[in-house]
Amino acid sequence: MDLKILLEQVPDGDGTWLMSLASGLKYTMIVAALAWIIAFVLGSILGVMRTTENKWAVRLGNAYVEIFRNVPLLVQFFVWFFVLPNLFVSTKHLVNSLDPLTYQLGASVLCLGTFTAARIAEQVRAGIQSLPRGQRDAGYAMGLSQAQTYRYILLPVAYRIIIPPMTSELMNLIKNTALGYSIGLVELFFRTREMGEMTFRYYEAFTAATVAYVVIAMIANRAMAVIEKRTAIPGFISGASAGGGH
């Protein structure tokens, strides 16, 4: 183990291996951040749909969750990268007109976003359904519409309850970005492998990446804990059990 290798130049590259890994880390964070936005918005919509009184909204939400939860994420990456662009002539033209990196980024963000949305939808549904039925009825009794009841009564409490499982989901999302490697996205794991392949210093490369992922996980964990504290409602105990998955 000799970490000095990190300060050596990449052959025919523009900097040291450390900089190469850092640039990978940058893409990991970009993908995670953009995918989180999609996952949060889409997952919230789907989660709410599954708790409404509209039968078709519930079915649609359930179908989405089942489809995206029951296909391995790796296969979903392959579908986004290899299958979808080739299905139609128009999508193929669109994809070919893009810079490959743009498409790899886009495919990774959409893939991780839609996958994580299914998991968030499950948490949001569980959060809303954990609230006493009386809260919804109270909203209606006060003359609020269904939308207003969600906006002002159900969601503010439900979101607070599900902060711990959402923390796990965020951490899972960051870890899952490593699968972008499978479609050639130059994120942290790709750069780690590349460094291993080109310098044959696998232990050094993988140690650096392991430390980076652990540090990110700690930061994400801390950040969510701060949010949890800031938004806590006195008298409520948050702490739904953490979801499974990776």
């Binding site: 490593a178 699968l179 990446a209 652990v214 996980a217």
Partner: peptide, 17 residues
């Protein structure tokens, strides 16, 4: 905590070596 904070893919490669 270590296992849960790093990607499975990384773990797969670590144990492979």
């Amino acid at each position: 905590n270590l296992m849960r904070s790093i990607p499975l893919l990384l773990v797969v490669f670590w144990f492979y070596f």
